[in-house]
């Protein structure tokens, strides 16, 4: 799998895809969606779709694709090669959500949570298939959340397509298994060959599974914690594992939308300036204070009595 497009800038989200088989533009198709790397504190989360004509479902089954989680990394690689060989009737596309995208979205001023992020990635991929002319009739989705609501959301978004959202869909429907293999292979590669944008010299790549409970992952997180910057962009800052470590080992950083400081920020919005505690007009003696001209207040400029 060629991840160069993603590696060119692994701080953002990136789409990778196979060519669309001609037959998918003329025949009714089914499409499976699955994700890889939702839980880990490290690396990207990858959303994958795989599609083929409904009439070729049996051929796909014969490739012996199965839920990627039950397979070894080598088996997944192998199956991905098989899927690649079946490109006459199987197509795939991936949305790689970089860990930086995940962090900055989840920690955004207006929070963009992981579910919304996942749903949008899935919807984007289905739309992509439609835009490529794939004759979509059936969509199968694996989910971790409540299936009904998600199914309703997708059905509404894609009228004319029969949407089936099911927990464990990756072991029930070969097209979902195929999608999960594509996603997992991309995630494996991205993590294994992560190109650190930071200038960290040689980075120890023994970060384990990336799951917070993996001791290897834990010790890696401790080893690479920087007291000011926290972590390289490879780490999802929005994960509580990362947050907890930063809270105890890094220097505190405060933003104007922090909850604890939020009251002050709100006060500032109302212009009951927080700056009043810095204010130039500390009553010195009994001089009565005059209001500063708006040229200065608008520019947050003030006289100071000490450097």
């Amino acid at each position: 799998m060629d991840l160069r497009d993603f590696e060119a800038d692994n701080s953002v989200s990136c789409r990778l895809s196979s060519p669309v088989p001609d037959v998918c533009r003329t025949e009714d198709c089914c499409l499976g969606i699955d994700e890889a790397g939702r839980g880990p504190v490290l690396g990207p989360m990858v959303y994958g779709i795989c599609f083929c004509p409904v009439s070729r479902k049996e051929n796909l089954k014969n490739l012996k694709v199965a839920d990627s989680k039950t397979l070894s990394e080598a088996e997944r690689e192998n199956l991905f090669l098989k899927l690649d060989k079946a490109k006459g009737f199987v197509g795939w596309a991936l949305q790689i959500l970089s860990p930086n995208t995940i962090s900055t979205s989840m920690l955004q001023r207006v929070k963009y949570n992981l579910n919304a992020l996942s749903h949008d990635a899935a919807i984007g991929l289905v739309q992509y298939a439609l835009d490529c002319g794939v004759q979509l009739k059936e969509v199968f989705v694996d989910t971790v959340g409540p299936a009904e609501k998600y199914e309703e959301k997708l059905s509404q978004r894609f009228p004319g397509v029969k949407v089936t959202v099911r927990p464990k869909a990756d072991s029930l429907f070969p097209i979902v298994s195929a999608a999960s293999i594509c996603a997992k292979v991309a995630r494996d590669h991205a993590v294994k060959d992560w190109k650190f944008t930071e200038d960290l010299g040689r980075v120890d790549t023994d970060y384990g599974s990336g799951y917070p409970n993996d001791p290897k992952t834990k010790s890696w997180l401790l080893k690479y914690l920087d007291p000011v910057f926290g972590y390289p962009q490879f780490v999802r800052f929005s994960w509580s594992t990362a947050q907890t470590l930063l809270d105890s080992k890094a220097v505190p950083v405060h933003w104007d939308d922090d909850e604890e400081d939020g009251e002050k920020a709100a006060a500032r919005q109302n212009n009951t300036s927080v700056l009043s505690y810095f204010s130039r007009s500390k009553p010195a003696g009994n001089t009565h204070t005059r209001e500063t001209h708006r040229f200065f207040t608008e520019r947050r400029l003030q006289s100071i009595d000490t450097l």
């Binding site: 220097v251 104007d256 400081d261 700056l275 520019r299 947050r300 003030q302 006289s303 100071i304």
Partner: peptide, 19 residues
């Protein structure tokens, strides 16, 4: 010369390799 300070809450500087 007079000294005026731009003072807005929630700012810090990076100056080369320091905060």
């Amino acid at each position: 010369y007079e000294v005026k300070a731009f003072v807005e809450d929630f700012h810090s500087w990076f100056i080369d390799q320091t905060v």
